[in-house]
């Protein structure tokens, strides 16, 4: 820990980075029109949260195991959920021939509900 560069990087900086990541992901989810890009943005959000946990865990040396446990679980869980998301995106692509959200919306408005 004697390194001069890493010495000035505190948990505070990690939090800032993770919050930036979080909101970048949130913007991606809300603004992106591509089904896959939305999923990537979700991954951004989850990683931001993970980073937050890791930074706090390094700060709380006694209860660090809690943060690391959660990170492992959440990584696994987000992988699981994302795979399901990709499956849905794939089916949507197969059905509509596009992965553009607005085009899909227009199409199923055209074809009539149900």
């Amino acid at each position: 820990m004697g390194n001069s560069i890493f010495h000035c990087v505190t948990t505070y900086n990690y939090q800032i980075v993770s919050l930036i990541l979080f909101f970048v992901g949130l913007l991606g989810v809300t603004l992106s029109r591509n089904l896959i890009k939305i999923l990537i943005s979700l991954e951004f959000i989850m990683n931001a949260v993970n980073l937050l946990f890791i930074s706090f865990a390094s700060y709380k040396s006694e209860q660090a195991y809690l943060g690391y446990t959660l990170v492992i679980f959440s990584t696994g869980m987000s992988a699981l959920v994302l795979s399901v998301g990709i499956y849905f995106a794939y089916i949507l692509h197969k059905k509509f021939g596009t992965i553009d959200v607005i085009k899909i919306y227009d199409k199923y408005k055209e074809t009539g509900k149900c």
Binding site: T11, F22, G25, L26, V29, I38, L39, L42, I45, M46, A48, V49, L52, F53, F56, A57, Y59, K60, Q63, L66, G67, L70, S74, S78, V81, L82, V84, G85, F88
Partner: peptide
């Protein structure tokens, strides 16, 4: 799915701050 993951992330971010 997208909304659930986002919402869970919100909750987890809150939990992370509480943890900190």
């Amino acid at each position: 799915l997208v909304l659930t993951v986002t919402a869970s992330a919100f909750m987890l971010a809150g939990a992370a701050f509480l943890y900190g």
